[in-house]
Amino acid sequence: MSNIITVKDMCLWYGEHQALKDINIDIPSKSITAFIGPSGCGKSTFLKSLNRMNDLIPSVKITGDVKYNGKNIFGSSVDVNELRREIGMVFQKPNPFPMSIYDNVAYGPRTHGVKSKAKLDDIVEQSLKDAAIWEEVKDRLKKNALGLSGGQQQRLCIARALAVKPAVLLMDEPTSALDPISTSKIEELTIKLKENYTIIMVTHNMQQAVRISDQTAFFLLGELVEYGNTETLFSTPKDKRTEDYITGRFG
């Protein structure tokens, strides 16, 4: 399996505060990678760095290398919009736009210049199918997306992210606001999505990391303490700090 994202000696500061320290990690394509760690450990900051969402915060300073498909994402020739099209994001709280289900999914492709109605119809249908919500919404595509349940809204947000044909999906605690049934649907969906996409997910639910991820990275105080095969990390962690965190001795 080739690595779609490679990170070398990456550090990140918010003003004077160093939030990430010498992060080195290779993320294999078409797999699920989980980031775990206590609140404030830097995992979400790191996730957001991968498609340069942190650019929006003025005091942020980043050093080191982050390569996507072998190309430095901070390079001067990089088109940030294109980068964010290829590396999409799904947030903790479902955030559909206050418009119809159809328009939510068509929003991205339209922004990227797709105008043909037939083509948009195809993209919307395929994206909703890929996000395992088509059957539930196919008869009410023109209805406002805010009328959907939380779990449906989150799958719609995934469909919206898929509509621009990304290669990587970043998910920041995508199920923390959902009930167990919706959570399980998103988990099933994520496993299906890794056939075609690379998924990187921040989760506070360690059982979720065990259930669905291939690799797990444990962050603590801005450091990447341990990274490896999920089963190995959760059965025989190498670092005592990992052992203490996952067995609930702190955090």
């Binding site: 959760f234 059965s235 962690p237 996952i246 067995t247």
Partner: peptide
């Protein structure tokens, strides 16, 4: 407890 690591072993 859904044990992991040493507890699971």
């Amino acid at each position: 407890q859904q044990p992991v690591a040493k507890d699971l072993r």
